[in-house]
C-alpha cells in the first residue's frame, strides 16, 4: 500500500488530481491487470511495471489525458528509483 501512496503522490503532481483519486486510479488498474481479488500488499515491482505499461496506460488514454506516455514513463522511472520501498514496507 505504501507504494500505491507513493505513486499516488507522484501522479497527483503529474496530472493535478486529488491523492485519493490518484490512488483509486492505480488500484483499479491493478485490478484490471492482476485480477479483482489481488492483495494490494503483495503486488511486487514487476507486477507494477506490467500494470503501469498496460492497464494504467489504457485508463489514461480512455480518460483523454494528454501526454499519457510521458506520465507512464515518469512513474516507471520513480518506481525504479524507489523500488526498495517494496522491501522496506513489506517486512
Amino acid at each position: 500500500m505504501e507504494v500505491i501512496r507513493f505513486l499516488g503522490d507522484m501522479l497527483e503532481k503529474l496530472i493535478a488530481i486529488s491523492p485519493p483519486a490518484a490512488r483509486g486510479l492505480l488500484k483499479l488498474s491493478i485490478k484490471d491487470e492482476l485480477g479483482s481479488f489481488t492483495n494490494l500488499n503483495k503486488v511486487n515491482y514487476n507486477d507494477f511495471l506490467k500494470v503501469l505499461n498496460n492497464s494504467f496506460k489504457n485508463r489514461l488514454i480512455k480518460l483523454n489525458i494528454p501526454s499519457y506516455d510521458k506520465i507512464v514513463n515518469e512513474l516507471i522511472y520513480e518506481l525504479t528509483r524507489n523500488q526498495s520501498l517494496f522491501t522496506m514496507s513489506g517486512i
Binding site: 507513493f6 503522490d9 524507489n82
Partner: peptide, 11 residues
C-alpha cells in the same frame, strides 16, 4: 532512498 522518499506520504 531516504532522501528521495522523505517528503512523500509514507509512514
Amino acid at each position: 532512498a531516504y532522501k528521495q522518499l522523505k517528503k512523500h506520504d509514507i509512514q
